[in-house]
Design a protein around this nucleic acid. Structure first.
Lengths: 337, 337
DNA sequence: TTTATTTACGAAACCGTTTTCGCAAAGAAT
DNA sequence: ATTCTTTGCGAAAACGGTTTCGTAAATAAA
């Protein structure tokens, strides 16, 4: 049972390809009788439309690109589900690309997206990305783009983000209320707006609570897991060691806990910890971890919906859309007084 | 700076499209001088090849499909990385599809894959899949397929799996050696070969250790998280409650720990736990979780490499390839004597 | 010098669709 | 009976590439 082309299907039916194409697309030019015959034969002969021939002619690929820094993070896993759920409903296909946090990869990926391969791009920028030329180039090609979670600030590009400043403020305040005198914020990279905004909120809370040295309270945790580990070890051994930590991204949670295990730093009595994370295992960690939970699935879903609106309604002004979804602080033992 | 077609590029250069196409494909028919000119102009005029026109003519899409039950699981996240890493090197694109453990979705997805959209398929079957007609149909279309992790047994289809029987045996033996008299195996679905093979190994270990009722020791944890939760609660409250658990998939770990928290069952003194899992948080759980760690990244990588071999070398007999990668038991507190 | 071969390129067919346009035949309006 | 519409379909031109085949000029072999 081999595939056949529309031409063969047409020959079989003694119709023209034009008629068959229109019949399958339910055109009003074709009689119901003919449509029935065509559909029946298509099914019987196992006809399948060639999507690339279709794309070539239509200049629409029914495909979007999803550009992520990584998928090790649980946040992105959930976001993929959200994106997939709406793409599926819309009959779109999803190409997944990973930048591995490298801007060089990101550039390559986005240049591929200019080829007509995709009708739109959902992306979360890498932590290395400091110039947006490759993103702008894509936009100039007329490809709709939506940032989700990690955006690049200062561009006219749609984005779905979380209330990072407020969450940063909230988490710092939470630590201070629970007795921290010297809380520290762990940033992933000063390139990332999400980290910066969370850090700003964090610092604002310190200021409001008359805690000085707010600037020294931001610690950048770039590099490999090992490098981060060493950095944290030094931090927690220093004479001015912190009594509270807010970690800006999920994967720092593991490092913090492991370092504390090794140094015998007790959480929460010696160090209180809050992490921006969607880790499902947060409640069964030792001790249960207080998290700022982002709406990961919702973020993906909303971003995808926005993108499809931009793709399908050309009069819709996508680039100024900004959606901010709320995160929630879930208190657990790791930050208790 | 808008995109141009090859025709426009050719006009600009006063060459024919044929010459330009060959030049860009580095054909030996074209002089170095001409190639240089063409490449320079292509770059200058921002020419980008239309991949779908190319696919249409070549009958190769340079795209593979990745069909997963879900991505909530950390195993699949890591596998995606492995797959992506080799696809990237090979210049292939990856379409991601989620079946959400529903066979109906799986059928739809695979039928899409028959259209020429992809050159090959990597898949992990859903837990609902009991008949393989949709998979066989795909294979009959000549599309190379490689199963990874979750296979469908009894087909002539390449697969990359782990040593499930041995790991099941090992985990049960580990519990028994540490004092368990009444260990239980939590299966996800009796449809899944990975669960069944792990269960077989588990039962074999019980038999070898003269522990009776090996058949009653397999508990199927189908359904929603809530349903699983209730089932586990009943299990751990029953008069013949187990003193050891081997959970066949990662996401059962959370349920087990939460139920134990609620029922005040102490791990490992009252209940020893081993989980098939790649959870990075295993060492910081309360208590640290003993895991059977599968080589997730390697599995994805190997499966992708196998698939590309099948795609690129048509004389390579893909369908009989079976690669078994070893898992490792990592002992932690949750299973200590 | 003649013939054979190689080199460098172009014309045109082709991949599988969609869409425009033209054109009969049938039905409606005059 | 004549004109005007509508209905249902087909021919052919796209879409943007790749490949086959032909051919003229340049080079090598005889």
């Amino acid at each position: 049972m081999n595939r056949i082309s529309m031409r063969e299907l047409a020959n079989e039916l003694q119709f023209s390809v034009a008629t068959v194409s229109k019949a399958l697309n339910d055109s009003h030019e074709i009689s119901e009788e003919t449509k029935r015959k065509v559909r029946e034969a298509a099914c019987r002969l196992n006809y399948i439309l060639n999507p690339y021939a279709s794309s070539l002619r239509n200049k629409r690929s029914k495909t979007i690109a999803l550009v992520l820094p990584e998928v090790a993070d649980n946040f992105f896993s959930l976001a993929i589900n959200g994106i997939q759920s709406v793409a599926e409903k819309k009959g779109y296909h999803v190409l997944i690309y990973l930048s591995h946090e490298k801007v060089a990869n990101e550039k390559l990926i986005l240049s591929q997206c200019c080829s007509g391969r995709v009708d739109g791009v959902l992306m979360s920028v890498s932590s290395e990305t400091t110039d947006a030329s490759h993103i702008l180039k894509l936009q100039q090609q007329g490809i709709p783009i939506v940032f989700f979670d990690r955006e690049f600030e200062g561009l006219h590009i749609a984005k779905v983000i979380t209330n990072d400043f407020e969450s940063g403020y909230l988490s710092a305040n939470h630590l201070i209320r629970n007795g921290c005198k010297n809380p520290v914020f762990l940033s992933l990279s000063s390139n990332l707006s999400i980290c910066n905004n969370r850090a700003k909120g964090f610092k604002a809370a310190l200021d409001d609570n008359k805690i000085a040295k707010a600037d020294k309270a931001i610690v950048e945790c770039k590099g490999t897991t090992e490098e981060v580990y060493e950095k944290l070890k030094r931090l927690l051994c220093s004479k001015n060691k912190p009594d509270g930590i807010v970690a800006s991204v999920e994967r720092l949670a593991l490092s913090v806990y492991l370092v504390c295990q090794q140094l015998n730093v007790s959480i929460p009595s010696e160090l209180k910890v809050v992490v921006f994370s969607t880790l499902r295992t947060a409640p069964i960690l030792n001790p249960p971890l207080t998290t700022i939970v982002q709406p990961a699935f919702e973020t993906g879903k909303t971003a995808a919906e926005l993108l499809f609106k931009g793709i399908e309604k050309k009069k819709f002004n996508l680039q100024d859309e900004i959606v901010t979804l709320p995160s929630a602080l879930v208190e657990r033992v790791s930050s208790q007084r």
